[in-house]
Simulated scan of single mutants.
Amino acid sequence: MLGQKEVLDSVQQCMEVQTSAIRPYTPMKGGISSVWFDRLKISNDCPEHLESINIMCQVLTDLIDDEIKSGIKKNRILVGGFSMGGCMAMHLAYRNHQDVAGVFALSSFLNKTSAVYQALRESDGVLPELFQCHGAADELVLHSWGEETNSMLKSLGVSAKFHSFPGVYHELSKAELEKLKSWILTKLPGELERQSE
């Protein structure tokens, strides 16, 4: 059994990390925060702030393009994140990059009227698989929002897995990271061996 540090190190080796932007954040009364995009409130029943989401989609698209230029095949790229990062990954993949290897979203949700759903209604191709985890005790991003997102994406043709973690709040758990690592290795077989060469 791997320790938490080893699991984190292994997962990090398989991912390219991009950080969010510094911007005013409406739920903090316009205070400056490091967030992927703005939102009107932390809720799944309000409109999305598409302007800020689209700006970050372009920043992340540039990062994907750089990876492709450096020789990484697009079908070997995973996108994902925790909380807003997972939401951002779903926007990026399902609206703009439906040919990536997969998507992971940890403690994340999409708004009920998300632009992601509209993009998927207009899509007719093969979609990247979604690996989703959520703490059942999460009081910031409700577990039910994650479940609703997963169900909606499934209804629109996404092969989606949803893993619940009892007693876990809005945080990462060792068990969750171990499941994520296993999923990454199924999507990108041989990745850890390549990293150690």
Rank of each mutant, 00 (worst) to 15 (best):
L172A: 04
K69Q: 08
G125T: 10
W36G: 02
V79N: 01
L153G: 07
M28H: 10
G31E: 06
H97E: 02
K74M: 05
V79P: 04
I77H: 01
T113K: 11
R39Y: 03
V11Y: 02
G102C: 08
R23F: 14
G125Q: 10
K112H: 12
F37W: 01
M56T: 03
S155H: 09
E16N: 07
H163A: 11
L180K: 00
Y169H: 13
E139A: 15
P27H: 02
I68C: 14
P24N: 01
R39C: 14
L156T: 13
T26S: 13
G167R: 06
W183P: 07
C87A: 15
N150F: 00
K69F: 04
Y25W: 11
N54H: 07
I32C: 04
E122T: 07
F162K: 03
C87I: 01
V103E: 11
E129K: 15
Q98E: 11
C14R: 06
L140E: 02
M15V: 04
A89N: 06
V100H: 02
D138I: 00
L142Q: 11
S155I: 08
S10N: 15
W183F: 01
A160T: 13
L156E: 06
E122Y: 07
N96C: 11
E48A: 12
Q98K: 11
E148W: 09
T113L: 02
G71K: 03
L40G: 12
A93H: 04
A137G: 04
I55R: 14
S34A: 08
I22H: 01
A89E: 02
E148S: 12
Q132F: 10
V168A: 09
K161R: 14
M56E: 06
V141A: 06
D65H: 08
F104N: 08
Q18Y: 07
G102L: 08
E193Y: 02
V100Q: 09
S173Q: 08
K29W: 01
T186H: 08
L127G: 02
W36L: 02
S83N: 00
T186C: 14
Q195V: 09
S159I: 10
Q195K: 12
Q4Y: 15
C87N: 06
I55P: 02
D124Q: 14
E147D: 13
S164M: 07
G135V: 12
P189F: 10
A136E: 15
S159R: 15
K5Q: 13
V11S: 01
T61L: 10
Y25M: 05
